[in-house]
Design a protein around this nucleic acid. Structure first.
Lengths: 143, 143
DNA sequence: CTTGTTGTAACCATTATAGTTACATTTTTG
DNA sequence: CAAAAATGTAACTATAATGGTTACAACAAG
């Protein structure tokens, strides 16, 4: 299975908040850019709020950034929206037969490698900040 | 979402076939080691057959390897069982609003990075052969 | 012919996702 | 104060993928 689109939507939202700094960014307004339902946006915004990236006035609405984009890596966003439930990318078949030499040991041996693979993927995300991404985005928009 | 356990089961199966070289490895027998239903095994074995890793006599049964384990990387297995449907690890939210500067450009900018993250993960899998894994497994079993 | 096995189709339960409706709560403003 | 505009959240739906299961036709070998 694929990694939830919550992640790409969250990046979209944060980029919007950064670029439309002065707009009144309601869930309704954001939803139009993402092209989805406002409640979907509110759910994800809620996670970004819990992570301390944004603030959302309750009655008046309009989310805004409260953390420097340089201090938010893509991995932080990935984690904030729980892009992979539980954090482990690879699903194991649980309870192989412990009486079998292979069944009893394969999990430990394979796990070593899969965690390394996961770490390699996450490292790429950790190496890119939202600041850099928004910079790229601005270049692309400008051209 | 997580990557299908088909992958770890497939690795388990290939390891079994390698280590129990002389056994009559029926889906029933393999299923006992994996601790699942024989049909699940047959489904995955079918994919490994299609990939050219194993052969399966039809009436008499008992799968066996027909490819050198040194020539099968974990990535090959990963691909053989379609561990991530379609091959793209990250799910995008489709059809962002093209009229919005952010909505119209975020996908291209983000995609660059996510494909790099996916490639980094797959590279780790590509760097480990089933031969190496079975070696590790044998050490672990021996100790 | 009988037995054991594969290959497949069909169905089910479970889980996660994304979208949607509904509504209580809160803030602002007239 | 009352109306308007938001949020936060619960509940429900539809869809998809997964893993397990049953059933059965096809096939090989003793």
């Amino acid at each position: 299975m694929k990694i939830s689109s919550r992640f790409s939507v969250a990046v979209h939202i944060l980029s919007l908040l950064a670029i439309a700094k002065d707009a009144h960014c309601t869930s309704e307004w954001i939803a139009q850019s993402v092209n989805t339902h406002p409640v979907v946006i509110r759910r994800i915004l809620g996670m970004l709020k819990k992570a301390g990236f944004v603030k959302i006035p309750k009655g008046s609405g309009g989310a805004y950034l409260i953390k420097d984009l340089d201090d938010i890596t893509l991995l932080d966003v990935y984690r904030a929206v729980d892009a992979v439930p539980g954090g482990e990318l690879f699903q194991f078949h649980e309870h192989p037969n412990p009486a079998c030499p292979v069944g009893g040991n394969i999990e430990a041996v394979l796990q070593l490698i899969l965690l390394r693979a996961q770490a390699a993927m996450e490292q790429i995300l950790a190496d890119v900040t939202m600041e850099q991404l928004v910079e790229n985005l601005n270049e692309k928009i400008g051209s």
